[in-house]
Structures are given as structure tokens and as C-alpha cells.
Design a protein around this nucleic acid. Structure first.
Length: 203
DNA sequence: AGCACGATTAACT
DNA sequence: GTTAATCGTGCTC
């Protein structure tokens, strides 16, 4: 996706990412998956967003130009992938929470310790482990030519259209005050069965 | 300098 | 349903 796609209202970007493909070039291997869950985090006023602390070393990337990866470390062991949105100077990003793997099943199974496929990438830290994404990619420009991490449309340059996209409160914000705790900025896509999705996506 | 907690996960009972 | 793992970050003293 070009940078203009991310230089829009974060809520719209989060919703529109559902059905698009997240791609990781890991050495000579290509790993990808359809984005099925994402959350919007928007501005210093959003008390669920890290930018509530203002401009710090950690939040610096979120204040930068759209289309870069904001990757942070939490719980002493997990990496999380976000994509920076909106104009430079305004801190906002979309957290990628779940994908459905369509390329690189073998290496994903390996990286996810041979767990069953439905547990491979159904969480923000899980998909980072599956796609070999960590802090070394923080600030990475996912809109650059020859990027090793990027978002693309599917074969007809459109998202795999979800049967529906539902919005709910964001996950894991139990200590965040209202209205931010309940604001419906989490988007989850419902798709056809895995087999149908894979047939539609092609290889 | 010290501390509480986290946009989570996996392994328990 | 409950809890340990494990450490960077931001806040308080």
C-alpha cells in the first residue's frame, strides 16, 4: 500500500486493513497472511494510546510520517507490530492483532513451535513471532521499494472482502478510563472458511 | 534510584 | 478461570 493509504483517519485505516495482506520477506522466504483483526490508537487524548505520555523515545516513531512500523516490547518478552497513520506530527497507529497465514506455513509452524495452525497468529505477539518481527524493525518504512515488511492488496489489488467487519472495544485496556476503554476501535473481519479463503487468495 | 505495570502468552488447576 | 514469565518505560521520591 502506498503512503497515502496510511495518511488518513486512523479508524478508517484500521477498518480498511481488514482483508489486506501483511507480507514479511524473511531472508529468502516470503511469509504472508490476511489481516483479520486490527485496532486504532489515536493521539495524546486517547488514554489507551502510548502517545498519552507525549513525545518520548518510545513514542517517537508514532509522531513520524505514516507508513512506518511502530514496534514495541511489552510484558518483558513480547513484540507488537503497529503501522503509523495520519500526518507527521500527530501520534497515531494501527495495531495488527491477528492474521491468517497464506504463505510460509512451514516456517511459521516452526517459529510457532509446531502448535496447531489456528494458534499460529491469533494474537499480536504471536504474529510477530511467526513473521520474525522485533525491535530491529522499529521505525521501518513499509512503503519503501523492496521493503522486507509491507502491506499489499490481494491479487486483484483489493482486499479479500470480508463477509462482515465488526467493531468492539479494544483488548487489554482494563486500567484505561472511559470513554477510551470502551470506544469501538477494534475491527474484526469474518471470512469464509480457511479453505475458501486460500482458494480465493491463490498462491 | 526505586517501583508499578503493561495494546500478552502459555501452562496451569 | 488463574497465574508466572520477564524487562522497558514512565512516574514518583
Amino acid at each position: 500500500m502506498e503512503r497515502a493509504f496510511f495518511n488518513r483517519l486512523t479508524i478508517d485505516v484500521a477498518r480498511d486493513l481488514i482483508g489486506m495482506r501483511l507480507v514479511r520477506i524473511d531472508g529468502d522466504r516470503r511469509i504472508s497472511g490476511i489481516i483479520i483483526e486490527a485496532e486504532a490508537y489515536r493521539g495524546e487524548e486517547d488514554l489507551g494510546c502510548h502517545a498519552k505520555a507525549g513525545l518520548t523515545p518510545r513514542t517517537r516513531v508514532m509522531y513520524g510520517p505514516p507508513g512506518h512500523a511502530y514496534i514495541y516490547f511489552t510484558y518483558g518478552m513480547h513484540w507488537m507490530l503497529n503501522i503509523v497513520t495520519e500526518e507527521e506530527g500527530f501520534a497515531a497507529a494501527v495495531l495488527i492483532r491477528a492474521i491468517q497465514v497464506v504463505e510460509g506455513h512451514d516456517i511459521v509452524a516452526q517459529r510457532r513451535n509446531h502448535q496447531p495452525p489456528h494458534l499460529w497468529t491469533n494474537g499480536p505477539a504471536k504474529l510477530c513471532q511467526a513473521l520474525n518481527i522485533d525491535g530491529s524493525l522499529n521505525g521501518y518504512d513499509i512503503c519503501q521499494p523492496e521493503a522486507v515488511l509491507f502491506v499489499e492488496g490481494n491479487p486483484d489489488n483489493r482486499p479479500i472482502l470480508p463477509l462482515s467487519v465488526t467493531s468492539t472495544a479494544r483488548v487489554g485496556l482494563n486500567n484505561v478510563p472511559e470513554p477510551w476503554r470502551s470506544i469501538p476501535w477494534r475491527f474484526v473481519g469474518a471470512f469464509k472458511t480457511q479453505t475458501d479463503t486460500e482458494r480465493n487468495v491463490g498462491t
